[in-house]
Amino acid sequence: MSRTAVWYWAARAALGWLVVIAAQVFWLVVDDENALPVTTHAAVLVVTAVVAVAHVTVMPQWRYRVHRWEATSAAVFTQSGWFKQEWRIAPVSRIQTVDSERGPLEQLFRLANVTVTTASAAGPIKVGGLDRDTAQRLVADLTAAAQATAGDAT
């Protein structure tokens, strides 16, 4: 993973929390009928802000520490999960497609995601938070390795 991914994950989380906080502030301002007392609105807003700050601070660092990937000439390996760790291994001979994608926020941070689709019922292997150059190299390397491997990837 790129170290820049930590900032991307924090920014993405912060944007989500800003929407939640903005909705709570809007509700506080337009609640003319006082469905909830102002102090209750304020307390909920404070709790939301505390949880948001904790999430934006802890989640990206934790994610960076537990998510891993590696690609060799024989297989693609990924490790993911927060509390329950999952290892996925896809032999190169099973690779059907290799895709790269970048959303608008990822483009801003110069990051990309790579998806390796295999014949596995467990679904594709996703490698996120890569710097753009590493992602391009990974796609090229896996594509070349899959093409050089005999078999029909099933």
Rank of each mutant, 00 (worst) to 15 (best):
V6Y: 02
W7S: 14
W7N: 09
W7C: 01
W9K: 06
A11M: 13
A11D: 07
R12E: 12
R12F: 09
A13Y: 07
A13S: 15
A14L: 15
L15E: 06
W17D: 06
L18S: 14
V19W: 03
A23S: 09
Q24D: 02
V25H: 02
V29G: 00
D32P: 00
E33T: 11
N34G: 09
P37H: 05
T40F: 02
H41L: 08
H41S: 03
H41I: 04
A43D: 06
V44D: 03
V46H: 07
T48Y: 04
T48A: 15
V50F: 07
A52P: 10
A52N: 06
V53N: 05
A54H: 12
H55K: 12
V56N: 12
Q61N: 14
W62A: 04
R63A: 13
R63Q: 14
Y64Q: 10
H67D: 02
R68M: 09
A71H: 09
T72R: 07
S73W: 03
A74G: 06
A74H: 07
A75C: 02
V76G: 05
T78H: 03
S80Q: 10
K84C: 01
Q85P: 00
W87Q: 10
S93Y: 00
R94M: 00
D99Y: 04
S100F: 07
G103M: 01
Q107R: 15
L108P: 01
A112I: 11
V114P: 00
V114I: 04
T118F: 03
A119C: 08
A121P: 15
G123S: 13
I125Q: 04
G128V: 07
D131V: 01
R132S: 13
A135C: 12
Q136E: 14
R137A: 15
L138Q: 10
A140R: 15
D141W: 08
L142Y: 14
T143Y: 10
A144F: 12
A145H: 09
A148V: 08
T149P: 00
T149H: 09
A150C: 00
D152V: 11
A153G: 03
T154D: 07
